[in-house]
Amino acid sequence: MFIEEKIDAKKDHGESNQVPMAEARELCKSFDGQQVLNGLNLQVGREENLVLIGKSGAGKSVLFKCLVGLMRPDSGKAWLFGKDISSLNYKDLNRIRLQVGFLFQGAALYDSMTVGENIAFPLRQHNRRIRESEVKDAVQEVLEQVGLPEAVNRMSSELSGGMRKRIGLARTLVTHPEFMLYDEPTTGLDAVTAREISELIRQLQQEKKISSLVITHDMACARIVSDRIAVLKEGSIRAEGTYEQLHASEDDWVKPFFDTSF
């Protein structure tokens, strides 16, 4: 365990198997009078991968930001590990965030740092007394996990889109999260790399027991990754089910997402 505060955090939340990893209750959010989230209800269980699909602007990324406290909902509650995040002070919110990994759409790698420094950054920030040898081992371990052990000394500007996503994933994995949020993990990648990333997400769930909430427009990724899929329409959940159930759906809104004939 590289992060000291995480030990306490685990005691406080997340030990009970009954508590969902993340939950949104009647979540509403609007921008300049435009309703983006409209009474959204959602729950992600333990060791579950939930995929969220919907048209662009349906409020998927806003939901992510509300869940991790980067945005305040206008009304409704967002819960992580059974805690209402709007009721937490900054310190407690950060303790909860230590259990959560967030892969941003553009990977959000720190430009001024090398790949190794990017990955080591959260470790060094959360444990000031950590030894350099421990940091090096942890960085190497996650780089091997994402299949890029040779990239440690490269600058983030030298990386391709797929490599950036993998390094972004490695940076979140190094803190051993219990719950991952993936914001369009395969967008902009070729079919082969997209499949590799999707399989990696699945592998993390199966081997590391990491639950996740995945936003994607890539139905191949949704099929590989999902235990359950939720379809978003105008800020609320229109349909929910497994890939097969939704694929067979006759709903006019749901059907086009699974239609591969065009």
């Binding site: 505060e5 303790r95 230590l98 553009g106 720190y110 430009d111 959260p122 959360h126």
Partner: peptide
């Protein structure tokens, strides 16, 4: 500004780094 636009500041925030 560039860090804000490319979500690097948000990435720090969600990693519990101030």
């Amino acid at each position: 500004g560039s860090m804000r636009v490319t979500e690097q500041i948000d990435a720090m925030e969600v990693s519990s780094i101030n």
